[in-house]
Design a protein around this nucleic acid. Structure first.
Length: 752
DNA sequence: AAAAAAC
């Protein structure tokens, strides 16, 4: 792709061999330009994916596609005239699409106004959310359903609401509409996957025809909307379909519910006194449509009393390990004087240049265990030459790479070593520039590094030290190929350090191939022996999952909720917010700016609850996470240990609660055994003392937290980016910029 | 089987 961009964007270079320095330079420039435009991707707003704005949007969704494609467009502008002609000819397909789109758009548009009214006047919207996907919750939906039906019969509106509202996941949309629209939806749905597959080609197609695009643009918005979020999630949606369908089978029950309902409504006063979940929920939904002003501050984490951190006194024992004096001095300034066991065990061997395997519990200080000797050795050597770094730290996630950079930065600065974060989702420019200028240490994720290697921007032939953090994960399928390729490019006599809290057979394979006479340091058993961690397993019924999750998450202190899928993360986070628990999702489907911002907010305390996939399972350190709730059980015992390890770090205390559905009981039990965790599964229901006390939960308020609060949280606090890039200038004139002749889409639109 | 990792 990178190459494709280069070609498309700088046709003049295309046919010439890039031999002369001048030509090389020109090519580099082109690359940089394309990289620069690709940065815009990071500015896709969270709202683009997940807001539920009611007004017709010109830009939402659209923006994403355009951004993605824009690099070429801007370069190709000159070419457009001719191409346009071409695209015309090609249009058959196009026009087809277009009609399609147009139609949808109309549809949407018309619907939108009314929907709003609905929202304003009615109370229905949210209930649905809540119940959306849980069959259990549905009981409350059911109450509503009668009227909706009538609506359906009389008008077409009901669904629109659906449509609008829950755009966020797109799911509830499907849900209630089952009656009339189902057909519609279905087709649509089944159509989507196709679209998806087709999209690749279509996109290609479009690319060449950029001119055609501009025509289409207006039409595209709605479509985008529709597809918007789920570029990744969509396929998952399909999975959800099964249950939904089951839903449809419920005809009879509905009848039943309807009959029931009038009575319940009449006794709403009484209902209020009853604190059953469904009823409170209904009552409180009214707040949602009012969309009262909120500020994120209201939802800040309730700080729990700080735990005393171990204070080390006396002479700095890092000095005894043979580390560079400047380094030791800086460590002292940072309050680090006593090495953790894993550090004391591995540093001497690492300084001696030996290959090693290090295993230390989660939160036991592995970053410094490999960081300090790496820095020490870098400081001893010469400055790295351009493009040829001397050390490489590889991590499985971008966040972890950033965290390692953050942890090592002060030490690197003290030693006047140059470093660069090399990870996807971020601008190429600083990465290319650093390599150009020469950089001593790269902290990288595999994909982007491979990309830079392929471009010839990086050369690993002078790498003296390679570190694999979370080595066992890196040795797993899906990672190991990339890692092998990278390791193959480093000198065979270089030092290699493999670290993780769990080392297993997969690591042995890598160790066997890439390590020479390695020494292994295991400071603890591989099981969950973190003594300050408490484990609980709650055996629950499916219909209680949501209320229990909400109750537990609604606790003071920072909480991480782990789920299995990206879509699940979005969904649970949304559900929590609708219950009045401020939560945001973190997963690989978000763009990097969003990921970074969510994590930052969680660290700072603005966000008390993080709902994450396993992207956050390993290595991520956040102070004072006092509970890890595994709403979906982890895949295996290693994941259990790593997820759990987000709490009880560096001597803090923490609790881990794992929810298991009846059919998961066996697997969870087996996993606990392998993980060495001694926890007896307990049957619980939402109001049990177990939930309220053991997990520290509290019944949530059910005062839905509006999307605007989340959008506000996600809005970058300073101009985007960590580098010196100051971000795109603020949009003016409705986002239309004459010079560019292009509407500048983007921004966070979802907060109104 | 999902997620992650480049665009």
């Amino acid at each position: 792709m990178a190459k494709a961009i280069g070609r498309a964007s700088a046709p003049s270079h295309k046919k010439k061999p890039r031999h002369t320095p001048a030509q090389k330079k020109a090519a580099a420039k082109a690359r940089e330009l394309s990289a620069r435009s690709s940065r815009r991707d990071d500015r896709k707003s969270y709202a683009d994916r997940s807001d539920r704005e009611d007004r017709p949007r010109r830009g939402a969704g659209q923006g994403e596609k355009r951004y993605g494609d824009r690099p070429q467009r801007s370069f190709d502008r000159d070419d457009r005239g001719p191409r346009r002609e071409g695209s015309r000819d090609d249009r058959p397909q196009r026009s087809f699409d277009r009609d399609d789109r147009g139609g949808r758009r109309e549809f949407n548009r018309d619907d939108r106004g009314p929907r709003r009214d609905w929202n304003d006047g009615g109370e229905r919207p949210q209930r649905r959310e809540w119940n959306r996907d849980d069959r259990s919750g549905r009981s409350s939906n059911r109450d509503d359903r009668g009227p909706r039906r009538d609506w359906n019969d009389g008008g077409e509106r009901p669904q629109r609401r659906e449509w609008n509202r829950d755009d966020r996941s797109g799911r509830s949309f499907n849900r209630d509409d089952r009656g009339s629209r189902r057909e519609f939806n279905r087709d649509d749905r089944s159509g989507r996957p196709f679209n998806r597959d087709d999209r690749g080609s279509r996109r290609e197609f479009n690319r060449d025809d950029r001119s055609g695009r501009s025509f289409n643009r207006d039409d595209r918005g709605p479509r985008r909307e529709f597809n918007r979020d789920d570029r990744s999630g969509r396929s998952f949606n399909r999975d959800d379909r099964g249950p939904r369908r089951d839903w449809e089978d419920r005809g009879p029950r509905r009848q039943w519910d309807r009959d029931e309902r009038p009575a319940r409504r009449d006794t709403s006063a009484e209902a209020r006194e009853n604190h059953t979940w469904e009823r409170r929920e209904r009552r409180d939904n009214r707040h949602f449509s009012e969309d009262r002003p909120h500020s994120a501050r209201e939802y800040r984490v309730e700080e729990t009393p700080k735990q005393a951190k171990p204070v080390h006194e006396g002479p700095n024992e890092f000095g005894d390990l043979g580390l560079n004096e400047q380094l030791v001095e800086r460590l002292t300034q940072l309050g680090l004087v006593k090495p953790f066991p894993i550090q004391a065990a591995t540093i001497p061997d690492a300084l001696a240049g030996r290959d090693l395997l290090g295993r230390g519990q989660t939160g036991s200080g592995k970053t410094l265990a490999f960081g300090l000797p790496t820095l020490h050795r870098l400081a001893e050597g010469e400055r790295a030459r351009p493009h040829k770094p001397h050390a490489l730290i590889l991590t499985p996630t971008r966040e972890l790479a950033m965290q390692i950079v953050d942890a090592l930065r002060p030490l690197l600065q003290t030693l006047r070593l140059r470093h660069q974060l090399v990870a996807g989702g971020m601008s190429y420019t600083p990465q290319l520039r650093s390599l150009e200028q020469g950089v001593d240490l790269l902290v990288a994720t595999p994909g982007r590094l491979a990309d830079l290697l392929e471009r010839g921007a990086a050369d690993l032939s002078e790498v003296k030290i390679t570190v694999l953090d979370e080595a066992d994960h890196m040795a797993e399928m899906g990672f190991v190929e990339a890692i092998s390729e990278i390791l193959d490019l480093t000198p065979t006599d270089g030092q290699r350090l493999l670290f993780s809290a769990t080392l297993d057979h997969g690591v042995d394979q890598v160790a066997k191939k890439y390590l020479t006479d390695p020494v292994t340091h295991q400071t603890d058993s591989a099981t969950a022996s973190v003594s300050t961690m408490e484990h609980h397993v709650f055996l629950i019924d499916p219909q209680h999952k949501k209320p229990i999750t909400a109750t537990i998450a609604n606790r003071p202190g920072r909480t991480i909720v782990f789920v299995r899928t990206k879509l699940g993360a979005d969904r649970i986070a949304l559900q929590l917010r609708e219950c009045g628990v401020f939560a945001a999702a973190l997963h690989g489907g978000l763009n990097q700016a969003q990921r970074t911002r969510v994590l930052e907010a969680f660290k700072s305390g603005e966000l008390p609850v993080l709902v994450a996939t396993d992207v956050a399972a390993r290595g991520i350190h956040v102070d004072e996470v006092s509970l890890v709730l595994q709403a979906d059980p982890p895949a295996d015992h290693k994941d259990y240990l790593h997820r759990s390890g987000r709490t009880a770090r560096a001597g803090e205390t923490g609790r881990v609660v794992t929810l298991a559905l009846p059919h998961q009981k066996k697997g969870v039990q087996r996993m606990l055994d392998s993980a060495g965790v001694d926890a007896a599964p307990t049957r619980v229901t939402p109001h049990d003392a177990q939930v309220l006390e053991t997990a520290g939960g509290r019944e949530p308020s059910f005062e839905a937290i509006p999307q605007s609060v989340l959008d506000n949280l996600l809005r970058p606090k300073r101009p985007q980016g960590r580098g010196n890039y100051r971000g795109r200038p603020q949009r003016r004139n409705g986002g239309f910029n004459r010079e560019r002749g292009n509407r500048v889409a983007g921004g966070y639109r979802g907060n109104r």
